[in-house]
Computed example of a mutant assay.
Amino acid sequence: MLPTHGRYDYAGWRGRTPYAWPNGAKLAVYLGVNLEHFAFGEGLGAELAPGGPQPDVLNFAWRDYGNRVGAWRLLDLLDELSLPATVLLNSAMYGYAPGLVAAHRARGDEIAGHGRTNSERQSVLEEAAERTLIAEATAAITLHEGRAPRGWLSPWIAESRTTPDLLVEAGYTYTMNWCADDAPVWMRTRGGPLLAVPYPQEVNDIPAIVARRESAEAFARMILDDFEERLRQVQQDGLPQVMGIALHPYIVGQPHRMRVLRRVLGAIARERGRVWITTAGAVFEHVAALPAGQVPGCPRAAAAEQAA
Score class of each variant (00 low, 15 high):
236 Q>N: 09
178 W>K: 06
84 P>V: 08
278 T>K: 04
161 R>V: 12
283 V>D: 02
267 A>Y: 00
82 S>K: 09
175 T>A: 04
76 D>M: 03
300 R>N: 12
172 Y>M: 14
222 M>Y: 08
226 D>T: 05
115 G>K: 07
89 L>T: 06
244 G>W: 15
142 T>Q: 12
289 A>F: 02
7 R>H: 03
167 L>R: 01
86 T>N: 09
69 V>A: 10
180 A>F: 00
272 R>Y: 04
147 R>L: 04
63 R>K: 07
265 L>H: 05
89 L>V: 08
14 R>N: 04
104 H>R: 10
191 G>A: 15
31 L>Y: 14
48 L>E: 09
171 G>F: 14
124 V>C: 05
293 G>M: 08
255 P>H: 00
126 E>P: 08
55 P>T: 08
158 A>F: 06
184 P>W: 04
85 A>S: 04
227 F>Q: 00
72 W>L: 04
43 G>F: 07
264 V>Q: 00
208 A>R: 13
192 G>S: 10
215 S>I: 08
61 A>M: 14
196 A>R: 13
55 P>W: 04
36 E>W: 09
208 A>Q: 13
207 P>G: 00
243 M>N: 03
64 D>T: 12
173 T>N: 02
171 G>M: 10
118 N>T: 06
20 A>S: 13
12 G>R: 13
301 A>C: 04
49 A>I: 13
110 E>D: 12
275 V>H: 12
93 M>D: 00
130 E>L: 01
133 L>Y: 09
97 A>F: 02
174 Y>I: 09
271 E>T: 05
277 I>R: 03
255 P>R: 05
147 R>G: 14
258 M>V: 10
195 L>G: 11
193 P>M: 01
110 E>Q: 03
183 A>T: 14
24 G>H: 06
203 V>A: 11
290 L>T: 00
203 V>P: 15
25 A>N: 14
253 G>S: 06
84 P>A: 05
297 G>V: 07
241 Q>G: 05
202 E>W: 10
176 M>N: 06
5 H>P: 08
140 A>F: 01
206 I>R: 00
283 V>C: 09
303 A>Q: 08
166 L>Q: 13
97 A>M: 06
240 P>T: 09
268 I>E: 10
183 A>P: 03
176 M>S: 15
258 M>F: 05
308 A>S: 14
